[in-house]
Structure formats: C-alpha cells, structure tokens
Design a binder for these strands. Structure first.
Lengths: 115, 115
DNA sequence: TTTTAATATTGCAATATTACGATAAACTTT
DNA sequence: AAAGTTTATCGTAATATTGCAATATTAAAA
C-alpha cells in the first residue's frame, strides 16, 4: 500500500505524527536549527547554508510549513521564514506527559508488575 | 530518488531525525502512548489494542526498536515491550534548547532584527 | 511429540518521499 | 520595458513506506 490509515487513529495522534514526521528528516532538522539560531531569514539564506538544491529546500520548507512548524512571510521579492513556536510548544508538552519510571532497569525492567 | 542524503548532515541531526521519524506515524504514536499507559506489555496486547494486522504491528515495533524508542525482552514465548526512556529524554532535551522569543508576533514577527 | 500460541519474516502491491533540472511566477532594479 | 532576483512548481527517476496474507520460527502446552 504505502498509505497511512489515519482514520483509525485520533485527531491528536494524527496531528502529533504529522508534526514529528515533518521533523523526521535531517535536512528539516537542520533547517529548524538554523532558523532557531538566526531567529528568521529568507529562503535563500537556507539554500546557501545547506548542501541541497534550491527546489529541494523549497520542498522541505513547504512540508515544515504544512505541519505548522514554520511560518513564512512574503516581503516583496523574498519570503522570510521563522519557527512557529506553537508547534515547538506542542512537542514539548506532548513529551512532558510521558511517565518516567525511575525503577526502570532495576529489577526486571520489563516486568509488567512494576508500577 | 527517494534516498535521504544523510552524509550531508551531522550525526546529531541524523539521530534526531531518525528518532522523530520513527514517531512520525499515528500507529507508532498510538503504540508509544499505550506502552506509556501500561508500562509494559507483550506484542499481542498491542495487536488487540490497535486496529491493524499483526504483521503490521510487528513492523512498527521493529521500527520503534531500531530507533531506540522501545526495548523488547524475550520471555519464553512472548516478547515484552516497553518504552526506552533514554530516547524520550533525548527528545525532551533537544526541544528544550529551542529558543522561545516572547516578542514573536508583537512587531513584525519576521523581522530579523528582533533579538 | 503433536498441537497450539506468539511473534517475526517474506513477498508483494499501492502509495509516498526524496532530490533535482527545467521552468514558471512575481517582484525589483536598471 | 528589459533584465535580474527570489522562490515555487512541474516532471521525473530512484527509493522508501505502508499494510497485509502467507508463511516461518520458536517456545509452551497437551
């Protein structure tokens, strides 16, 4: 197939998967890190920064934007991109809710009875 | 192509992308949430829990394991899976380092001069 | 030892992703 | 207006992912 059955999962699960999937590529990780370091920049700066062709960068930027991770602002000829901090906040909050069992690894780490 | 040029990026960027990509699917998000809620369980429990066929679940579990997000322990006939908290910690730490510009959106949100 | 149970692997069809050259679109400068 | 600049889109080839039926594997149970 190759098609993800999104209808089988909750809206929250699908949204988190979409956001994380968008970050699931080293080029997009690098773009976000760069945007974080410079606050904001135009597309051309990223093209100069990363060793990928301009259409490839443009495509990655579109995916990041579709997932809500970045925002793009048209300024005349150029487009100024920056991180959408709402998405970063969502990721932080999501992973904050995972339990941390400090007994993990002590006894039989995979013992269901360990609460 | 369809092939990711991992050689162009740092080991850290590739590792983070690998981890996040593994979570970039609603089924794998659901699996992690379930594992978090029950601490640990055998594969069959996940198969019963999720509306996907057993081979599909097995495949998703392998991807989560390859990315370091879960651990699997063979116990006789069954395999007991649980979250590897090291990976969760890595994700938390990674996103904690992103700057949060509280001036975002105030003036021109995409003004590079906003520090 | 045969049967049953749990999980992994294989094989495959459908679809998605990645990367980029070529080109288009839109704005700026000359 | 013409030429240059910046970014997006199109088209395409190579590869990856998703999902599952069928089957293999391994251990437990009968």
């Amino acid at each position: 197939m190759g098609i993800t059955k999104t209808d089988l999962f909750s809206a929250e699960q699908n949204e988190m998967a979409r956001i994380l999937k968008a970050m699931g590529h080293p080029a997009r990780v690098a773009i976000l890190e760069y945007l974080d370091s410079v606050n904001a920049c135009i597309c051309g700066d990223i093209v100069s920064e990363l060793p990928l062709a301009q259409p490839t960068i443009s495509q990655h930027l579109r995916e990041l934007k579709n997932a809500g991770l970045i925002k793009g602002n048209v300024e005349g000829n150029t487009i100024c991109y920056c991180i959408d901090e709402t998405a970063i906040g969502k990721i932080r909050e999501y992973f904050a809710h995972f339990k941390v069992c400090d007994k993990q690894g002590e006894i039989n780490w995979c013992n269901v009875k360990v609460k």
